[in-house]
């Protein structure tokens, strides 16, 4: 297929544009795609970053949330460790350091939800050392939800065993915490 703009080169960029429900197909070569602004320049893939920072900008204060801080204040949020401001974060779509996650915490859920299909909490691997008591905490949580399930199913004998196990684990957790101090 030849390029519909220059009629010289092979069309390698194929676009479907939908404007007000009107569908148009565009077949152009790379040169014309760049000229016409269908494609960004350079090898750096524009997609993810641009899309992401687009997402962040749409995070204005919600009219439904009366307690939302004024826009100005949000923009002044600045990471104490690396100095990245929320505004810069929104522009580049990247974090500057681990502390940024704490600094911008209250604004992150909507972003993560969109990027990760509604998820905001980690549910995977925990590092051995850095994870500390997390392994225990997670095990306790798992047992607790099992306990709830067993009680619903009226399997009280099993439930009692799980309850004892939870007590046991919680004791371990407290001992660990005391030991650290």
């Amino acid at each position: 297929m030849e390029c519909q703009e220059c009629h010289q080169r092979q069309a390698t960029v194929h676009l479907t544009q939908v404007i007000n429900g009107q569908k148009t197909e565009i077949h152009v070569c790379e040169h014309c795609a760049k000229d016409k602004g269908y494609m960004s320049y350079g090898e750096e893939n524009f997609t993810l970053n641009d899309l992401l920072s687009g997402l962040f900008h749409s995070e204005g204060p919600s009219p439904y949330n009366k307690k939302a801080q004024p826009y100005q204040q949000h923009n002044q949020l600045k990471c104490p460790t690396c100095g990245l401001t929320y505004q810069e974060f929104a522009r580049i779509g990247k974090f500057g350091c681990a502390t940024c996650y704490k600094t911008f915490d209250e604004r992150l859920n909507p972003i993560f939800r969109r990027v990760h299909s509604g998820n905001t909490r980690h549910d995977g691997k925990i590092p051995k050392r850095e994870g500390g008591n997390l392994h225990l905490k997670r095990e306790i949580d798992e047992h607790k939800s099992k306990l709830r399930q067993l009680i619903e199913q009226e399997e009280f004998e099993q439930a009692a065993k799980v309850r004892d196990r939870i007590k046991n684990l919680e004791q371990q957790l407290h001992q660990g915490e005391d030991g650290e101090q």
């Binding site: 996650y101 993560f112 691997k125 925990i126 997390l134």
Partner: peptide, 8 residues
């Protein structure tokens, strides 16, 4: 690593 967000 963060308890809530995982590997940062």
């Amino acid at each position: 690593f963060d308890e809530k967000r995982g590997y940062l």
